[in-house]
Write a protein that binds this DNA or RNA. Sequence first.
DNA 1: AATGAATGAGAGTTCATTCAT
DNA 2: TATGAATGAACTCTCATTCAT
Lengths: 219, 219, 219, 219
Amino acid sequence: MDARRDIAATDEDSEPVAPARGAKTPRTARGERTLRALLDAAAVEFGERGYHEGSISGITSRAGVALGSFYTYFDSKDAIFRALVTDMSARVRDHVAPALAAAPDALAAERAALEAFLAFASSHKEIYRIIDEAEFVDPDSFRAHYETTAQRIAARLAKGSESGAMRPGLGEVHAWAIMGMNVFLGLRYGVWGDGAASAEVAREANELIAQGIAARAAD
Amino acid sequence: MDARRDIAATDEDSEPVAPARGAKTPRTARGERTLRALLDAAAVEFGERGYHEGSISGITSRAGVALGSFYTYFDSKDAIFRALVTDMSARVRDHVAPALAAAPDALAAERAALEAFLAFASSHKEIYRIIDEAEFVDPDSFRAHYETTAQRIAARLAKGSESGAMRPGLGEVHAWAIMGMNVFLGLRYGVWGDGAASAEVAREANELIAQGIAARAAD
Amino acid sequence: MDARRDIAATDEDSEPVAPARGAKTPRTARGERTLRALLDAAAVEFGERGYHEGSISGITSRAGVALGSFYTYFDSKDAIFRALVTDMSARVRDHVAPALAAAPDALAAERAALEAFLAFASSHKEIYRIIDEAEFVDPDSFRAHYETTAQRIAARLAKGSESGAMRPGLGEVHAWAIMGMNVFLGLRYGVWGDGAASAEVAREANELIAQGIAARAAD
Amino acid sequence: MDARRDIAATDEDSEPVAPARGAKTPRTARGERTLRALLDAAAVEFGERGYHEGSISGITSRAGVALGSFYTYFDSKDAIFRALVTDMSARVRDHVAPALAAAPDALAAERAALEAFLAFASSHKEIYRIIDEAEFVDPDSFRAHYETTAQRIAARLAKGSESGAMRPGLGEVHAWAIMGMNVFLGLRYGVWGDGAASAEVAREANELIAQGIAARAAD
DNA sequence: AATGAATGAGAGTTCATTCAT
DNA sequence: TATGAATGAACTCTCATTCAT
């Protein structure tokens, strides 16, 4: 119950929970509530037990509805997982966005993004797990999530070049490299760790991105 | 922890692929052959269908042995997967090692390692998949694989600092950052792509690692 | 211990065959019917083929339901066997009770009980088999059945002593002796035989219990 | 190991271990030893785990021979169990015989037999289990064991009548009744108990057999 | 819209038995 | 005689999905 709250509580206000890709559209307020309960319960179930170990009946019993009711809202186990990945993907983005907006310059933005992501990963391990497991359960969603993220990073790099804060010639490869770095640091220091070192980790990683690791003449 | 040590201990030099951790030891030549066939078949089965969709009977029929024979060599589906992850993990390392050894300096070594890894990922997509899926099937092996790899990178960074090719103060965070970059570039350009752009991708990524992306006074 | 109490508590008066200890409680009339069918089918299956040779699919096909339906009502093969032993145990008791109640005195009661038991054993051989096999499959139920039965006999002996029909000093040992005698005569003349000689067997056995086999001064 | 010794040690000398009904006849001394090891191991395996849970490989590994060797000596799992029941049956008889021979009169003989049996049951619970389980695994052996035993008791009763120590008219029914008492007292006070009360139990049971439980005029 | 019993394909696993060496 | 790898039938149990109520 606590866990559910933990996840569900995340961003109650951010977006009006889009009609959940993959879910059937409920026609009554009661249906609306049941759908939401199902989605929240699925986040807990899949987050705790994983896709294959998690079961529909686990979801419905957590949601407090009958087994059969599940199929009023989703066509299959896959469908709710897909809907969930989209949800979670948006949640990560929404969590990082404010930090990004507040950053004074392009390099600081990358640092702020990483720091926000580390904090998010450590406090929403279930979300991390769901997105990652999508690689095997729903490769399309997985790919879409990372390609979208990479594009967003690439756009920031382009702006950084324009503003003169970053050197020119940065593109997709650099975006993927930075994303990979962020994800693995999120795994190591967020999911496996407790997120305590977030600031220091972000500082070191940002220095790497900014200046590289080669010895400098000036050093 | 023991498992990790087990892997880390073999370290840099390629050994003759240990007798498959987790498998029962065959006592005859025929048994030896069957075990090998099973392991190879499992790599294909799990690589193609994933752990959960893959089945024991899929493995045995690919290996050309009877279903029951499986249990002469492995205690469970889990056991062979574990053995496989260890195997695959060693294979990645063994593939990268020569490129590393041949590099003229520390930075070139990182570039060579990435290039070798990209080539490997594109030609052994099933290995990539098996190691990654271990995150959900056998977290210990997964963690052991990445922690060992990170330690190896960290050791190289330390040597680079000593030799003066890299700046001082590089540690675990940088190792994980570089590993994350490599893995995601491996996914994007190796597994998803065809590995054709390996050299160019490696060059760009290496430039990022070496010099960073900040604009330089001299630029 | 609880299990024993569970049985002993119902005691002498026949109740409407409790809702099958160990089975999940059905919530619809259809479910009620399916549960009953499963229990009846299991009695036949285990009675004919024994616990180990008997199979779940044998039970469900006899009951006319799908294999999977079994697990809607029982957690395991063991669970239905346990439920069955409890059922059967109660059935034996219920069959003997009326004869006991109708007997004019304590010694006649023992004789009536044996006679009823012999008749029952010959017409319900599968029940005999199920209870007996419990010794190896579900020792707790087995023990509970015989300890409860022995207690019931001991209570009758105590009453017999009080009423002056039996000598004083009779206890647990005598109860177990009489029970063992009954069970073996049930096996020999009920299960193996056809129950035809019941009356004569009961007469001879009762004479043994009543007067013993030593030669008498008066003889 | 201790357990095996426990059983094997029983009556090393009594009979030259007949060619074990159901076993193939070994042609060498080595074979003789292997056969014996197999039989002893089977007694432990079946005694501890029961027939169905017990496995051939459990037997061979206890016996210290290879799995395949089993079939040099026995045609099937059933066959060794049959051989074992015959063995065990003889062992019970041999254990009781001396007590019987030493008894001063017919009634004392029955009492001595019961006392010896109780002691035996408490110190050889495995044997008790094997014989009893035969009811479901090898009904013929089971029946043979008890019919033979009953006949032996009946013969003693006949002699008792002749000698004047017992009343006339005793037959098969009485023999089965006495046997049933003994077996159940063996279960209750030997197998379930520790055999400590053997003498007192035998005394009470013998009084029942001898004098019955009816109140006597003289009382 | 909600319920929960019913379905049945399919999975992993066991093990008595065979047989080539 | 001894070995142990190989076999494959058979079993228990799971669970996504359907459907009558």
